[in-house]
């Protein structure tokens, strides 16, 4: 495990903690897209199908459990918690899951490392993760007021994949036979989707003003 990979995982973990902090302390999910959160729950379910069959390390298993558990609890809070669910902007969060999931599934069936159920699901999870942020970005554009925790959550989520790119470069250079085109390409697309957001995030940080995306 290299420093880029560890930092990436910790950034991912921090993004989840920031979101849960918002939900637990402010009892609010305002500005958060349930569609994106549901897509993440699907992403981790499909990717971690090997959790019971392939033991990699204690760290690996624990992190998988954390990402599965937190993604489903966030969805539960947003849908069913009697206070939290009231702050959900249902009318603004209109992106349809199927328009993201169907093309990803077709692509996973066509382009994969091996045509088995587990492999196709693993591949599908990467394609879907790459675009899962789109409902959130659309919601962000529509929401005029982006609170600090929401901004930080999305920044950390984007930073996590960007750091994974450094990890992939590092591993490609240092490890023989380390080639994973599917995570690389979808990870690159995923990071590029954050480009616009990063730009405005840094601008607001530099000028010390509240984050606002142009209409």
């Amino acid at each position: 495990m290299n420093i880029f990979r560890l930092t990436a995982d910790m950034t991912h973990l921090m993004s989840v903690i920031v979101l849960l902090l918002k939900i637990h302390t402010i009892k609010s999910c305002a500005g958060i897209s349930l569609k994106t959160q549901e897509l993440y729950a699907i992403v981790f379910t499909c990717r971690y199908l090997d959790i019971f069959t392939d033991f990699i390390s204690f760290y690996n298993t624990i992190m998988k459990v954390i990402f599965l558990w937190t993604s489903f609890s966030i969805v539960w809070y947003m849908r069913y918690h009697k206070i939290v669910r009231r702050s959900y902007d249902k009318d603004q969060d209109t992106f349809r899951h199927v328009f993201l999931m169907l093309p990803c599934l077709v692509l996973a069936l066509l382009i994969n490392e091996r045509f088995t159920f587990k492999e196709v699901m693993w591949t599908f999870s990467f394609y879907l993760e790459a675009v899962a942020i789109l409902p959130q970005l659309v919601l962000l554009q529509r929401t005029r007021n982006i609170d600090n925790l929401t901004g930080q959550y999305i920044f950390l989520l984007g930073a996590y994949r960007a750091l994974y790119i450094l990890n992939w470069i590092y591993r490609y250079v240092t490890e023989p036979n380390y080639v994973h085109w599917i995570p690389w390409m979808s990870g690159l697309v995923q990071t590029l989707l954050y480009g616009d957001f990063f730009y405005y995030y840094f601008l607001s940080w530099k000028n010390n003003v509240k984050l606002q995306l142009p209409a």
């Binding site: 392939d54 690996n60 490392e113 091996r114 990890n167």
Partner: peptide, 10 residues
């Protein structure tokens, strides 16, 4: 061809 067994990333 990728090494299928090296899926140690999250």
């Amino acid at each position: 061809v990728a090494n299928i067994s090296s899926k140690d990333e999250l």
